[in-house]
């Protein structure tokens, strides 16, 4: 398979629990080698969708194709999954646990042992290989969870809230490992509530609400789509006097101003006016692009939900 190829194809999928429709006619695709962010308020249907991709749950309607075909036992061995609510056997030695999980993913025990030791050493857990899981700190257990997910060198990784409960050091460690995996061509589907992580890491995103798609596309494109006709400037001068500026809004610090532009006026025209004006001194100039957090609140709020 090559980059740009579809790794996951979800077509018109619906899943209901009794009378509650968790996923409603949902379609999207995930491309090889990208970090695909999966967003949505609590109860939006994210986990159900991920479980259907993993063949843990079957859709009531629609179809899902994973890694180029229908789901088989062999497909399972090419996917790594880290659920949101995760745990480990407490009274089992770490290495034994990892070897077991590796063999369930089709690895030979000796390969699993070797790979587990490599990853444990890389995550500074090598000396705990013979320890029981219950003897590890919470942070260490989180790292072990991640090792379980990537142990068998999967082509597709599905991680549900990967950074929840992690301290900043371990968050960075995990983030770096995900970037390394992406560099190696691994496709990552990541569900998270941390919008800045999506802005920083995500290539494309899907936001669902009440089981339906509300936002879908490249992260930058989505943000641009929600951008107002406004610019954010820092500096000195009478901003309201600029041609095409309808109103000026200062932030709480009084150092940054949002200039709302009249219809038909583009940011480029304002920039040219500023360059030509000797009465204005500009330190920074940027498009007023909303954060994903703002977009999330805006979209979820419109649907009557709270993230």
């Amino acid at each position: 398979m090559s980059a740009g190829e579809t790794v996951v194809q979800v077509s018109q999928v619906t899943k209901a629990y009794g009378t509650h429709v968790a996923v409603d006619d949902l379609s999207f695709e995930v491309q090889r080698g990208e970090i695909f962010a999966f967003l949505g308020p609590n109860g939006a249907g994210k986990t159900t969708t991920m479980r259907m991709i993993l063949d843990i749950l079957k859709p009531d309607a629609g179809s899902i194709s994973v890694l180029g075909g229908p789901f088989t036992e062999e497909t399972k061995q090419r996917i790594g999954y880290m659920p949101e609510e995760r745990g480990l056997y407490r009274n089992v030695r770490l290495l034994d646990l990892l070897v077991y999980m590796g063999t369930l993913k089709g690895m030979r025990a000796s390969d699993a042992r070797q790979r587990a030791m490599d990853l444990l050493n890389r995550l500074e857990l090598g000396e705990h290989a013979k320890s029981k899981v219950s003897e590890l700190s919470k942070g260490m257990q989180q790292k072990v969870q991640f090792i379980v997910t990537v142990l068998h060198r999967p082509e597709l990784i599905i991680v549900d809230e990967p950074f929840s409960g992690l301290d900043p050091v371990n968050t960075q460690l995990l983030k770096n490992m995900l970037f390394d995996l992406k560099d190696d061509g691994v496709t990552i589907v990541m569900s998270t509530h941390m919008m800045h992580q999506v802005e920083e890491m995500g290539d494309r995103l899907l936001m669902i609400d009440e089981g339906r798609c509300v936002l879908y596309g490249p992260v930058d494109e989505v943000r641009d789509r929600f951008a107002e006709n406004a610019v954010v400037v820092q500096g000195q001068g009478d901003w309201a006097a600029l041609p095409g500026v309808e109103s000026v809004e200062a932030d709480e610090t009084g150092r940054e101003y949002t200039l709302h532009l009249a219809e038909g006026v583009t940011p480029k025209m304002v920039m040219q006016a500023l360059a030509a004006s000797p009465e204005h001194h500009v330190r920074s100039f940027a498009l007023a692009v909303p954060s994903l957090n703002e977009i999330f609140i805006q979209v979820a709020g419109r649907n009557g939900n709270h993230a």
Binding site: L54, P83, E85, R86, G87, M101
Partner: peptide
């Protein structure tokens, strides 16, 4: 209880 069952079910 430990929720490891979900990881297991993604394999077996």
């Amino acid at each position: 209880e430990t929720r490891i069952v979900e990881i297991l079910l993604s394999s077996v």
